[in-house]
């Protein structure tokens, strides 16, 4: 008999459901600042989970995911300003646009490998940023704010607007986690985990590696753009430098995944929590804060290369989101 859950995972599922219900009700128990913080937390949780899927499982170390974050933001602002579309409907459309764009872009960057792929994706994101700065109807280099009329179409009152943006963040954060978890438990996940561990063995056992990687790249681009469109709603504006920021949408995300534990589902969750704790307590230190982040990343890479969660699973052999198979011979 083969089982796929463990006592720890069943407990984790219950905790996750309770937590989700509590978070769903946050607009009624949390202040505006709490909602903002939780919303931002969800943004990073989603971006980190997606980047981890890309880099941690398929080995595609992209330093250019900000290309799709920015694209999503621009698509949402443009659609809601010029077509009067409800911003929430613009979110999936932004995802679709990114998927369509990622298909040719993927063909291009997939000609590069390893470090060249990393630099190539970064350069491409810079191209996206420079192109966005040329679009004068979107404010050119200085960007543009979402007009108040657009915000009014979302909901009349400030409470409901904030709640809607927050719920969108919650949906994308939980959605990214659910997507990654569901994917990794599926047939594709078996292939992804195998590719993570050995590409040559995967290929010789019949896995079409290139096709799997390409599909993951395109799907992650779509989800990343949806998160990007959410960010533009949270900030109520887009500008080339902020929307396509390599620091905000890729460097911090890599930090989160590396310290949390690359190639595990739990890693990005742990990493996001640590990142926000550090930020809350240390951000006032300015550039020293960034130096502490860098130092911490280096120490973790040296002491526990698989991150904090990697260390925990190695030590206690627990998994909150088990994707594996357990064989029981009792029957």
């Amino acid at each position: 008999m083969i089982t796929r859950s463990t006592p720890a995972s069943r407990a984790a599922a219950i905790v996750a459901l309770v937590l989700f219900a509590v978070l769903l009700a946050a607009p009624w128990w949390g202040a505006t600042s709490t909602l903002r913080l939780l919303g931002e937390f969800m943004v990073y949780l989603a971006l980190a989970s997606l980047w981890n899927l890309l880099a941690g499982y398929t080995g595609l170390v992209s330093v250019g995911q900000q290309a799709f974050v920015g694209l999503g933001g621009y698509v949402l602002v443009a659609l809601s300003m010029f077509t009067g579309l409800h911003p929430l409907i613009a979110v999936p459309i932004a995802g679709l646009v990114a998927v369509l764009l990622a298909m040719p872009v993927g063909k291009l960057v997939f000609r590069l490998q390893g470090a060249y792929f990393a630099i190539g994706t970064w350069v491409l994101a810079e191209v996206f940023r420079l192109v966005a700065a040329q679009v004068t109807v979107m404010g050119g280099g200085s960007g543009i704010s979402l007009p108040a009329t657009v915000l009014k179409t979302m909901a009349e009152t400030k409470f409901w607007r904030e709640a809607m943006i927050y719920w969108l963040a919650l949906a994308l954060g939980a959605g990214a986690l659910a997507l990654v978890y569901g994917l990794l438990r599926s047939r594709i996940g078996l292939a992804l985990t195998a590719i993570r561990d050995s590409e040559i063995a995967s290929a010789s056992l019949g896995i079409k590696i290139d096709r799997v990687k390409y599909a993951v790249y395109v799907a992650v681009a779509g989800m990343t753009a949806m998160v990007g469109s959410l960010i533009s709603l949270q900030k109520i504006r887009v500008s080339p430098d902020a929307a396509f920021s390599v620091n905000d949408w890729t460097a911090f995300v890599i930090f989160i995944v590396v310290i949390g534990g690359i190639g595990t589902i739990e890693g990005p969750i742990v990493g996001t929590i640590i990142y926000f704790l550090l930020r809350e307590f240390l951000a006032d230190l300015g550039s020293i804060y960034l130096m502490i982040l860098g130092m911490l990343a280096i120490i973790i890479m040296l002491v526990a290369p698989k991150g904090i969660w990697g260390f925990i699973t190695h030590r206690w052999n627990i998994s909150l989101f088990p994707t594996g198979y357990r064989v029981n011979f009792k029957d």
Binding site: A191, T193, S198, S204, G324, Y325
Partner: peptide, 26 residues
Amino acid sequence: SLSFQVPHPFNGMTVFENILVGATFG
């Protein structure tokens, strides 16, 4: 199908899961 001279196991997966990969994609 090739059984490699120098093994290339999927280290992060169990023995059963390793075999399951071959059974699924072969």
